[in-house]
Structure formats: C-alpha cells, structure tokens
C-alpha cells in the first residue's frame, strides 16, 4: 500500500463489532479507505458485507467499535450532526430505491430541494447535468417504473451524486444486470472516480466487477476480514476461502468439519 498521511484517510473503521441479538455478525473489523480510491468489500452470501455497509452509512448502530469519517466519529454523532455528515455522502441501493411516486428528475432534485436554498431554475439545470452524467439525459420526466433495471441504477447514482458528495457507497451495483449493462455500470463507477476524485465503497460478490474497478479489496468470511489489499495481493494469499472465491469453486464437501456440522444440526455447543 502506498505511504499515506492522515489527510489521505477518509474512512477508518476500528474494532467494529455488530450483533443481531446474541449472534455476532461482524467481529473485529479494522480497515482504512484512502481518499479517491475504489474500495471493494467482497464476500459470499451471508458473510456480513451488507451489514458492514449499513453500519458505514449509519442505518445500523454497531455493538462496539468506531467508524471515523473525515476524522469524525460517525457512531457518536447526534441526529443533527449525522444529517450534516450525510449530505457529503451518497448511496446507490441494490434495488435503486427511487421514489416510485416521483419522476426520475424529481428524485434527483429531491436532496437539492430539501437541503439547499437554490432557485428552482438552478435545481432544474443541476438535475439535468446529473442525469446527463449517468447517460440518462432526456429521461427526467419518466417515472422509475418506466425504466429498465440498469437505467434505474444509473438514476439512483444520479440521485446519490446530487449533493456532490465526497464518498459514494454502492450496494451490489451489478447484481441482476446482464454482463454488458453491468460492464457499463463498472465504467461509470470508474468515470465518477476519475472525474470528481470521488471515494467509492462498493459491496459486491461479482468477481468480474472487482477485477475492473477495485483499487483495494477487503474480503469477508463469516463476519471477519480474511484478506485486505490490492487484488494481486489477495490473489497471492494462501487461504482456502480466498482461493475458492477467485477460482469460483464450490465448497468441498469433505472439507466441512464434521463436529461443526453436527453442532449446526443439533444446536448444542
């Protein structure tokens, strides 16, 4: 990893522990995200990557540990401070989460109308710019239901970009899209990074995407980090789960620990 001073670190996660009831979902998570990089959180289904993302954007409170964004403790903020911090972040949801009752243009304009005192004519121009940026110029008057899956994700990105954020979070950006549309979206994530020096945190399980966009990869297995670094560093790791993931190999039945299997069936410790 390149030498970095403190100003280069935009997100820092320290000893993060997240629990659902008694079940520990994330355990001892530590990592740093540098300004302007694309940081990919990679892992299989149920490894806790979506939970990690929900904690990073403040939709969940951790059990313990700290999340520092621009050096400020995001987990210790009150509602007002968190609202302010959120104006500098954007998030693209897996299902795009556009408001179905509003046009695409109104969706993009919403954060501007609510958080700024700009003239309506200015907001309209800014909305058009954001839609052009994601390749949806001319679709402002469409309802979200009239767009295809890929277009919805692009519209979601335009809305996340509305307030010119410093950090943008993507939840499974290429899930459910065909390879061509998914590649287009990967290109868009790169373009945003180059054009605006935007820091991106991407949660995904698509290896193809990771190869295209990742600067740093953080690999999770059962709530723990098993690999952290550039893609090539991870590929060189001699860890069975990581190798399996890269080779797209199914879990070998003979590798399953029989005692653990028995425990999972009986529920006894």
């Amino acid at each position: 990893m390149a030498a970095s001073n403190d100003n280069d670190i935009i997100i820092e996660v320290r000893d993060l522990v997240v629990k659902y009831g008694d079940r520990t979902v994330l355990d001892g998570i530590n990592f740093q995200v540098r300004r302007g990089e694309i940081f990919v959180i990679l892992g299989g289904s149920g490894c806790g990557k979506s939970t990690l993302l929900r904690n990073l954007v403040g939709l969940m409170r951790p059990y313990s540990g700290r999340i520092l964004i621009n050096g400020q403790d995001f987990t210790a903020m009150n509602d007002e401070e968190r609202t302010d911090a959120r104006k500098r972040m954007g998030m693209c949801f897996q299902g795009s989460a556009l408001f179905g009752s509003m046009s695409v243009g109104d969706n993009v304009a919403l954060p501007l109308r609510e958080h700024t005192r700009l003239e309506e004519s200015t907001i309209e121009i800014m909305t058009k710019i954001k839609l052009e940026l994601v390749g949806l110029g001319g679709f402002g008057d469409f309802l979200p239901a009239e767009l295809s899956g890929g277009m919805k994700k692009r519209a979601g990105l335009a809305r996340a970009m509305a307030m010119d954020p410093e950090i943008i979070f993507y939840d499974e950006p290429s899930a459910g899209l065909d390879p061509i549309v998914a590649a287009g979206l990967d290109g868009l994530i790169r373009k945003m990074q180059h054009t605006f020096n935007l820091t991106s945190v991407v949660v995904t399980h698509e290896m193809e995407s990771v190869k295209q966009i990742a600067d740093t990869v953080c690999m999770l297995e059962r709530g723990r980090i098993v690999g952290l670094g550039a893609l090539e560093e991870l590929r060189a790791l001699d860890y069975p789960y990581v190798q399996q993931f890269f080779a797209r190999r199914a879990q070998d039945e003979s590798q399953i620990d029989s005692a653990e299997y028995l425990r999972s069936l009986t529920g006894l410790e």
Binding site: G58, L59, T83, M91, F93, A97, L98, F99, E114, H115
Partner: peptide
C-alpha cells in the same frame, strides 16, 4: 412498500 424497496433507508441516507 417503501420499506421493502429500501426507500425509507434511502430517505435516512439522504439526511431526510
């Protein structure tokens, strides 16, 4: 429906 479609989460994340 808004909750299921993560629209409520989207409101939170947008600071609304």
């Amino acid at each position: 429906t808004m909750k299921v479609a993560e629209e409520i989460d989207a409101l939170h994340v947008m600071g609304l």
